[in-house]
Design a protein around this nucleic acid. Sequence first.
RNA 1: UCCUCAGUAGCUCAGUUGGUUAGAGCGGCGGACUGUUAAUCCGUAGGUCGUAGGUUCAAGUCCUACCUGAGGAGCCA
Length: 479
Amino acid sequence: MRRTKIADILQNGVVGEDFLVKGWVRTRRGSKQVNFIALNDGSVIHNLQIVADVEIFGEELLRRATTGASLAVTGKLNASQGAGQNVEMVAEKLEVIGDCDPNEYPLQPKKHSLEFLREKAHLRFRTSTFSAVARVRHAMIFAVHNFFTSKGFVNIHTPIITASDAEGAGEMFQVTTLDLDNVPKTEAGKIDFSRDFFGKATNLTVSGQLEGELAAMGLADIYTFGPTFRAENSNTTRHLAEFWMIEPEMAFYDLNDNMDLAEEFLKYLIKYALEHCPDDLAFLSSRLMEEEQNKKAEDRSMELLEKLRFVLEDDFVRLTYSEAIEILKNSKPNKKGQFKYTIEGYGADLQSEHERFLVEKHFKKPVVLTDYPKEIKAFYMKLNEDNKTVRAMDVLFPQIGEIIGGSQREENHEKLLARMAEMDIPSEEMWWYLDTRKFGAVPHSGFGLGFERLMLFVTGMGNIRDVIAFPRTPKNAEF
RNA sequence: UCCUCAGUAGCUCAGUUGGUUAGAGCGGCGGACUGUUAAUCCGUAGGUCGUAGGUUCAAGUCCUACCUGAGGAGCCA
């Protein structure tokens, strides 16, 4: 008999039919007469209850069906007599595929802390929470490609190893094959990278954007979806050293087109999750409510499904940086000195507390901030006519803050060169980037979405280390 | 990197102003019982109290340094 996945049985299984299932034991209960085994095979959040008659299989065999052990079970699907499930399988054949010593197996049939499971990341796929997160994550990956495919975008794999140290997006991981115990030096005493693998200093990419722009200057609409590396010593619930980023880049798009796409994209992803992952989201929602039981009412977040639908219903608020500053300046917490950093006026860099105020207190919905002062934004952003601000946009979400950062790009060769000079970015080694501004330059725009930040929002998880299988953070590269 | 908090049994945690043989629940093991639902009941094993120093007659408890984790900030996605 062929194996049937538990998801299929629970959805399409006909009572009275025989099936073969394989999976891992979550719990076993029982008596002298009958054992109940909750079996999970990762295909759905739900377990299949196996009913095993002790007289048929013997205590010795059933004793081996400990939490974590893997089983193959053939049996008949029955309407369940118990209350916890509609159907169950009455075992006719039961085989232990792999034993699991309960003295050593760290997972117990009870709640574990997320911190504990993080240290057992190789086993946490066996838990309800992480398998649910993993399935939602897969659905989101699929939805990303679906969305862009439906719009005629071309996916580009941009390089993971790059030689440009001019992107200005944070600290980078160096890539080298030089012997670190015996580094070759130049006559001037510097490291001689000409003898390194690529003949120059290289590092892991911090963004695929610059390469993405090159592709957009021919394919028009492209997106990247790849790993991104930042060697920042960030210890927060929102940062990883290795994360996945989606970066669309569109020729002939201005900032408004860019914002429209970003909003449509986010809403598509959330809608997709609601439609395709109802069971996993329902589980994650109840998990979140349980976790927040001890919190004060005002500190609790909105119920997960309600929160997701809430984002779908309204348009995101769009306003300029200057307008945001005015709102913040005149806000209660600013006047009462409740902000750690008081907003004096134009030029201030917005802190998390300010972003959170705008999103969670003032507008109570996602906010898109545009036209930031050029001093606090990247060199490639298009300068506005006022010569002070750039066509940047940040999409701010409740709880997680900046989920998207993007801009219209500066396509004017001279202006771009001038900005690079102002910001001390060496233009010689960026010749390939600047070439796109010389040969048939067009207005274009793009943005970056941190995939794990999206996952935080969609799953309601509180820590970014719990929405990626093997998180890479300072002092942690286990597994 | 900075600030705050934490590290005691496999897990979650308690341990009073320093004071004798360090506790509980869950899990494990043994048994009883039951169409069970993180089953229930009885019994049982299990701890160099994060590491290294120091103060003291006496340190899980006080002090110092370090390590690890969590939350917040910065950096950002």
